[in-house]
Design a protein around this nucleic acid. Structure first.
Lengths: 149, 149
DNA sequence: TTCATATATTTGTCACACTAACTATTGGTA
DNA sequence: TACCAATAGTTAGTGTGACAAATATATGAA
C-alpha cells in the first residue's frame, strides 16, 4: 500500500462528510427545523438516554467537552434542554430534555430519516455494511488505544 | 432501505472524517510541519497547478470562497504563497507558490504519505476501491446537478 | 484534617464551513 | 456611451472542532 493514489481517500472522505452535513443542514433549514445537524445529534441521544452528564453524552456523540458545552448552551437557550444539578456531585449536571425538546425529537425524527436515505440511492445494503466496516476499521486504526465498539 | 439503522452512516462518516483529520493534524504538529491539514491540501494543489485563480483552486479542493480566502491569507503570511495580479483581469489573482512554498511541498510530501497510510492497516486494495466508489456515489447523490469527474 | 490528584465543566484562541452582504470589475447590450 | 447583469474576491456573523488552560469540586492517602 505504497502508491501515490492512496492519499486521496482523506480528500474524498472529508469532501463527502462535508457534503452530507451540508445537504442535511440545507434540508433542516428549508424545513425550519430550528436546530443544526450537530444539535440534532445531541437531542436525539438525549431522547434515548435521559439524565446523562455532559461527559457521558460527550462519549456517546464523540464530541469533545468544550464543543459539547457550547452545543448544550445553544439548546438551553432554545428551550430544548435543561441542566439539572447532579444531586450527589456538585461539579456535574444531569441533562434533561424539556417537553419542548422531546416533542421536537418526535416531530423531526421521521423527516430526518427521509433526508438521510437520499445518500443511499444506487447503493445496496451490502455496500452499507462494507461502508460501516471500513469506516470503523479506519477509526480504530487511528484511535491509538481503545476499541470502543 | 427504510430501516432505522440507516441513519447511522452519517454519524460514522462524520466521526471517521474528524478522526482522520485530527490524527493527521497531530502528526503535523509533532513534526513541526508549520501548516494545517487544509493548508497542506491547498499547497499540494498549487504545486501541481501553478498560477491558478482562487476560483479555479476553490473548485479543485472543493472549498468555498470565504474559506479559501482565509487559507490563502494564512499561507501568504507564512510566505508560502503569493497573490500575483492577473494581467488581464483586475478582479482576480494568480496564485503563485514561492520558493519556500515549493520546497515545503517537496519536503512534506513523503512524510504525509506515511501518515495517510496508517488508516489502511487491516484493509485491502479492494476495500480501498469500494470505499472510493461508495464515497463518490454518496457525494453525487447529494450534489444535485453536476457529476464533477 | 490536609494535601495531592483526579474529574466535570467552562473559557479562550485559532482554524474551518456556510450564508449573506459588499466592493470592484468585466462584458454584453440598448 | 450608458446601463446592467454576471463574476472575482473580501468581510462579517454564527456554528463547530481541536487544543490548552482555568475553575470548582471530589476523592484518596498521609
Amino acid at each position: 500500500m505504497t502508491q501515490e493514489q492512496y492519499s486521496k481517500y482523506s480528500f474524498l472522505l472529508d469532501r463527502t462528510a462535508r457534503k452530507v452535513k451540508q445537504y442535511a443542514q440545507q434540508q433542516f433549514k428549508t424545513g425550519d427545523f430550528d436546530v443544526t445537524v450537530d444539535q440534532w445529534l445531541v437531542l436525539k441521544n438525549l431522547s434515548e438516554n435521559n439524565l446523562l452528564s455532559q461527559t457521558e453524552l460527550a462519549n456517546l456523540v464523540f464530541k469533545d467537552h468544550p464543543t459539547l458545552t457550547r452545543i448544550i448552551d445553544l439548546l438551553c437557550k432554545k428551550g430544548y434542554v435543561e441542566r439539572v444539578p447532579h444531586p450527589q456531585d456538585r461539579r456535574s449536571f444531569q441533562l434533561h430534555l424539556t417537553e419542548s425538546g422531546a416533542s421536537k425529537v418526535v416531530s423531526l425524527r421521521p423527516e430526518i430519516h427521509q433526508i438521510r436515505e437520499k445518500a443511499w440511492e444506487n447503493l445496496s445494503p451490502h455496500d452499507f455494511e462494507e461502508f460501516k466496516r471500513i469506516l470503523n476499521t479506519i477509526y480504530q486504526n487511528l484511535n491509538g488505544e481503545s476499541l470502543d465498539q
